[in-house]
């Protein structure tokens, strides 16, 4: 299978603070891939580099065939239409209703009629588990879990090739969290979606992830399927997965 994302020897610094020191990983098409690691190890930062929100100081990142370190504005814009992003803090537009948040890209980038947009948005609302009546509410009027679902619906609305999720199940109740996992796997099967996520949720890790990368001490300490990762000797991996058993 083809790689959709290749990260090679990436180095990141914030001033004096070296966050990544030569990160290497690759994500294959149709895979659900996780970034794991202790708090502050730079998972969100790595994801932000992949979605072109943050610069890296050295190395190379290739996403869907584009090298990000010298990408042109036009290709960058094309890339942005091929992914969906779910932020750790949801980042719904507070001045728009849930419905308008989800419909925004469709209005902006397609010529669908109002009615068709409404039907597509209804469908997305429903698959993420929101009620139709929730669409009329503003982000300030819904709960944290509902915001997460609305943000996922927004990320999915353009039928993206890749979905980036930063801690998608944090803040969800266990039932919603498992539904979320099932939804992600279902979407992956149906839409041939590739998913890259940052997660701390052990159940998500064991049930949904095909492969994962563990970042610790500025480097990748392990990459591969759960069995492969568990074989690696590392203090973080031991502590993290011990809690499970």
């Amino acid at each position: 299978m083809q790689s959709i994302l290749k990260v090679q020897e990436v180095e990141t610094r914030f001033g004096e603070n070296l966050v990544h020191d030569g990160i290497n990983l690759h994500v294959k098409e149709g895979e659900i891939y996780g970034f794991l690691g202790p708090s502050g190890c730079g998972k969100s930062t790595l994801m932000r580099e992949v979605i072109m929100l943050e610069h890296f100081s050295k190395g190379s990142i290739e996403l869907l065939g584009h090298k990000l370190e010298n990408i042109k504005a036009k290709q960058a814009q094309e890339l942005r239409l091929q992914w969906g992003v779910l932020f750790q803090s949801n980042a719904l537009f507070t001045s728009l209703t849930v419905f308008e948040n989800i419909a925004l890209s469709l209005h902006e980038y397609t010529k669908f009629s109002k009615e068709m947009i409404r039907d597509i948005v209804s469908f997305k609302l429903d698959i993420v588990g929101l009620k139709q009546s929730d669409g009329a509410l503003f982000p300030s009027q819904i709960s944290g879990g509902m915001k997460k679902k609305a943000a996922l619906a927004r990320a999915l609305v353009m039928d993206p090739k890749v979905l980036f999720l930063d801690e998608p199940t944090s803040g969800l109740d266990p039932i919603s969290a498992r539904e979320f996992d099932a939804l992600i796997m279902n979407l992956r099967d149906l839409l041939n979606l590739s998913v890259v996520m940052v997660t701390h949720d052990l159940t998500s890790i064991t049930t949904t992830l095909d492969r994962m990368a563990v970042i610790d001490n500025k480097k990748i300490v392990a990459e591969g399927s759960l069995e492969e990762v568990l074989k690696i000797q590392s203090p973080f991996i031991e502590r993290f997965f011990k809690m499970e058993g």
Partner: peptide, 10 residues
Amino acid sequence: HSHFGANHVS
């Protein structure tokens, strides 16, 4: 999962 004709406008 579709709701044709659903109304989202308050």
